[in-house]
């Protein structure tokens, strides 16, 4: 039987894997972003312990391999008596990672804003947090969009690592298929193309977002 003759039987499984890949990416990107905002604010606008903790978290997460983190969460933490499903273990790992990386990108966006902006905000009587919320953050976010969309692309790619802790995502489904049918080259090639398509979609969506939020003076090209 040829590759394309056996493929249809496995399509539902592969589709389910694709769905998990997309779900992992989207949830990790969204929750990671929510976490990254307090992280970057602690990093830039607090002193002492909150700042130190944020710095420590980002350094540790960015300084260790994702796979090792997943092993620690999936195999290590249950030894303390907490049971974690593979999908949830992967999700925790991805959320923490994307939070740390997004915080770093956002920080870049904040640093691109001149200190006069904060002074100007103070000079008309805004409070510190008001100034950060209505003046600084909207600008920092626009500066950070290209980097943030890169982070989603990284997430799409790195969800495949969840295969190693038995999350039945796209790569795992391809592996099952390959062990059943021995069409290794064909199936990995095929899902390689699927990943590339996913990434193409993400970069198109991010271009659209950038276009929608575009404001004269925020052309990213002149910054990089």
């Amino acid at each position: 039987m040829s590759f394309f003759a056996v493929l249809p039987k496995y399509l539902p499984d592969l589709a389910h894997g694709l769905w998990l890949t997309i779900a992992l990416t989207l949830i990790a990107a969204a929750l990671g972003f929510l976490l990254s905002v307090p992280l970057v604010l602690a990093l830039l606008y607090t002193k002492g312990i909150p700042r130190m903790l944020a710095r420590l978290f980002i350094t540790l997460v960015r300084g260790t391999p994702l796979l090792v983190q997943l092993f620690f969460i999936y195999y290590g933490i249950p030894a303390l008596g907490i049971r974690i499903q593979p999908f949830n273990a992967a999700l925790i790992g991805f959320i923490l990672n994307s939070a740390a990386y997004q915080a770093e990108y956002l920080k870049g966006g904040f640093m691109a804003i001149s200190s006069e902006q904060m002074e100007a905000a103070y000079s008309i009587g805004l409070s510190k947090w008001q100034a950060v919320r209505v003046v600084i953050f909207p600008q920092a976010f626009r500066f950070a969009i290209p980097a943030l969309s890169n982070e989603i692309i990284y997430l799409v790619k790195y969800t495949s690592v969840a295969y190693v802790i038995q999350v039945p995502e796209l790569l795992s489904q391809a592996k099952f298929f390959a062990s059943d049918t021995f069409f290794h080259l064909q199936i990995y090639f095929l899902i390689g193309v699927v990943y590339l398509l996913l990434i193409w979609v993400v970069s198109k969506l991010s271009d659209m977002l950038e276009h929608k939020l575009h404001i004269p003076g925020f052309d990213i090209a002149h910054l990089r």
Binding site: S114, E116, Q117, E119, A120, A121, Y122, S123, I124, G125, L126, S127, V135, P138, Q139, R142, I215, G217, F218
Partner: peptide, 20 residues
Amino acid sequence: LIKIRQKIGMVFQHFALFKH
């Protein structure tokens, strides 16, 4: 200071308009 600064306007060398 928030009360005070409302009573004192400031104009900046590089304008410092909120660019967004």
